[in-house]
Design a binder for these strands. Structure first.
Lengths: 169, 169
DNA sequence: GGGGCCGATGAGAGTCATTCTCAACGCATT
DNA sequence: AATGCGTTGAGAATGACTCTCATCGGCCCC
């Protein structure tokens, strides 16, 4: 997979949303006045390429280097921050304080494996509505609630298959 | 408030739970074979004294020093970790990856102020049951869910009174 | 009641993720 | 070619946290 010229105007799909491609995100970037440099394309491709599994900045940097060898860790952080501000990626902080990045544009939850620490996307269920209602109920306290975040933990496929479901992260 | 001799056998209340006092926690500590040193008592008192507002390790250390001037930051971390293992305090990691400590033994949620970062305890509502059910529903995926964590965000009393409700952490 | 044992401590160095600084680069415009 | 400005790489700085190690201080045994 090469991340160099990244076709422009090839697709007219939604810039965000379930079907958005790498090119769509590149377009979004440029539309906001940012240059789509090879480094930024590589970082973007690295996050998108991780699929349902969320990745750390260091992992993103490693993957991006396979596409553009000059990508630096500082640039990776800068780019991820930019993509976060543009709403293209999300940053998830969990249990041990480590941050991982996620490019899934659909509403979803995150599940952290108690064994290996992997963070995967989980489909969104019916909790959201209940949480919305709960939010309103909590607001008459000394705290005005405006949003929430849910995080699940358990065991990923790999760890379950390997029988590793004992320890606690 | 002095944290020196910390009466033993004064109370016979539940060692854990809503009505537990500083002395109860000290007892719990000793019952498990750990020494209730002045430093540990001070750290414990510092966390308990913070009430509904959760505190960072550095804040705990500062508060503890008012009770026992020799308390060191390393000792604070060590003690907080010990108290965590004993189930006396809980560690909450939120938004920016900073960890805060909480001594509230009742089931509750945490609310993070988007303005000043303060973390307060919020009363537990009816979400828990829904989340339990949701957990089971999510488990037939490539991930076995065994638990969850909910975090609310909004604006604390102080920031609302001061009219600071604009920015996002 | 002196000595040894062992858990606990303070100070400071080390670690790790993340951010900052700054000179250099690259591309567009003139 | 000259200028300007966004972007970059390298490495230093930061900040939270953990580790190391010599020392301290109760407690037990003789």
């Amino acid at each position: 997979m090469a991340v160099t010229t990244a076709g422009r105007g090839r697709r007219r799909a939604a810039a965000q949303g379930a079907g958005a491609t790498l090119g769509d995100r590149v377009d979004a970037l440029e539309r906001q006045g940012y240059r789509a440099t090879p480094q930024r394309r590589a970082v973007l491709a690295a996050v998108l390429g991780a699929g349902r599994v969320n990745v750390s900045a260091e992992e993103v940097c490693g993957r991006a280097r396979a596409l553009c060898p000059t990508v630096n860790l500082a640039t990776t952080y800068r780019t991820l921050d930019l993509l976060k501000r543009l709403g293209i990626v999300r940053r998830v902080i969990y249990g041990d304080g480590r941050g991982v990045f996620c490019a899934n544009p659909d509403p979803h939850y995150h599940g952290t494996c108690l064994q290996c620490g992997t963070v995967v996307d989980l489909p969104r269920g019916r909790i959201a509505d209940v949480l919305e209602r709960e939010q309103r109920g909590l607001t008459d306290q000394a705290f005005a609630v405006v949003g929430h975040r849910v995080e699940f933990y358990g065991y990923c496929d790999a760890c379950r298959s390997a029988g590793r479901t004992g320890s606690i992260l």
